[in-house]
Amino acid sequence: MHLDHAVTYPHRHTHSAAPRRADGSRRALRIGLGGPVGSGKTATVAALCRALRAEYSMAVVTNDIYTREDAEFLLREAVLPPERIAAVETGACPHTAIRDDISANLEAVEELEDAFREQAPLDLVLVESGGDNLTATFSRGLVDAQIFVIDVAGGDDIPRKGGPGVTTADLLVVNKTDLAPYVGSDLDRMARDAAEQRAGLPVVFQSLREEDGVHTVARWVRERIAAWVAA
């Protein structure tokens, strides 16, 4: 009964990952933020929203592991209006949802893009992963660039240990530098180890306790958007 296709039907990709949509418009730049539990992903997303929301039409997708905690934090902090924040449920496997089976995240990203297409098309979508381990990275089918967030309190040997997040992310953020003296972390050593692991890819040390602590990461995002739009 089935159809055998004599002519090969044109192959397409994920019906979303292409930089231009069917109508020719350039879709929003998608940046993933991953990293271990408690390293400050949500705080970095909140700070980026505050820093960039006046310049860009932006939205956030969160991947909470078992609650809507991260989405609700962003709502409570009112960093963006609620219609610009979507939560994806991950079935106890946060890395699966951002790497092996990205379908739910792509759905969420596209729904946000569709919702704002008429009034103010999105320039930027931040996809925050659920807190995971050092091997969790985003699929290139889901994001155009990724930021890996670790913190000094998680141990200053993490850059040396490497792993896909630390070595391959487009930007490595070492967060909570204000805590370094209290937890005995050697920032110079972390910087040396990170440089060795990352073959020239950038590393940012930040403390969100400081006034405009997210400014370096925000500048990196601005540069990525400029390059995306110009491409």
């Binding site: 192959h11 397409r12 019906h15």
Partner: peptide
């Protein structure tokens, strides 16, 4: 319906077909 949408995305990329 959500799972149907997700499967359809995967199916269209995996076995491109007019139907």
């Amino acid at each position: 319906r959500r799972l149907g949408r997700q499967l359809l995305r995967a199916a269209r990329a995996t076995w491109p077909a007019p139907e």
